[in-house]
Simulated scan of single mutants.
Amino acid sequence: MARMISAPVLSQEKRERYDAFRQERTFNAYSVGNDTVMTRIRHKSLDCSPGCAVEATLQLIDGKWKGVILYHLLQGTLRFNAIRKRLPNITQRMLTTQLRELERDGFVLRTVYPEVPPKVEYSLTTRGQTLEPVIMALKAWGDEHTTFGHVPEICADMKGSPTNS
Rank of each mutant, 00 (worst) to 15 (best):
L60E: 13
E24Q: 12
D143G: 05
V54C: 08
N34L: 10
L73F: 10
M158L: 02
T97H: 04
S45E: 12
F21P: 13
G149P: 05
L99G: 03
T36M: 08
A20H: 15
E153I: 11
D47W: 03
D157N: 13
V116K: 15
L60F: 09
I5V: 02
P8S: 00
L102T: 13
A7G: 05
Y30C: 07
H72F: 13
V32A: 15
L109D: 07
E16I: 09
T97N: 10
E55F: 15
G67C: 01
R79W: 07
Q129A: 02
L109T: 10
A29K: 11
E55G: 14
T57A: 14
K85I: 00
Y18N: 07
M94E: 14
K119T: 15
I5P: 03
V9Q: 03
A20E: 15
D157Q: 10
T96V: 12
V9H: 02
L10T: 11
T163Y: 02
F21Q: 10
Q92M: 13
Q75K: 05
T125D: 08
I90A: 07
G33A: 03
N34Q: 13
A56L: 07
L131Y: 05
V108T: 06
N34P: 02
V108H: 01
V112M: 10
L10Y: 09
R93Y: 03
M38K: 09
S165R: 14
S165V: 10
Q23S: 14
E115Q: 13
C52Q: 04
A156K: 05
A82D: 08
G76P: 06
N28V: 06
G63I: 08
T57W: 11
T130S: 04
D143M: 04
Y113T: 07
Y71K: 02
C52W: 07
E153P: 00
T125A: 09
N164V: 11
K14C: 00
S45G: 01
Y113R: 00
H43N: 12
E101C: 09
K66P: 04
W65G: 03
K66C: 07
K64T: 03
V120I: 04
S49M: 09
V108M: 02
S49L: 07
V120R: 10
K64C: 05
R86Y: 05
H150G: 03
Q23T: 12
L73P: 11
R25L: 11
Y30K: 05
S6T: 09
F148P: 05
I5K: 04
Q59C: 10
Q75S: 15
N34E: 14
G149I: 00
L78T: 10
Y113Q: 14
K139T: 05
L74D: 08
M1F: 06
R86M: 13
S161C: 00
F21N: 06
A7F: 12
T39V: 02
G33I: 02
Y30W: 09
R17A: 15
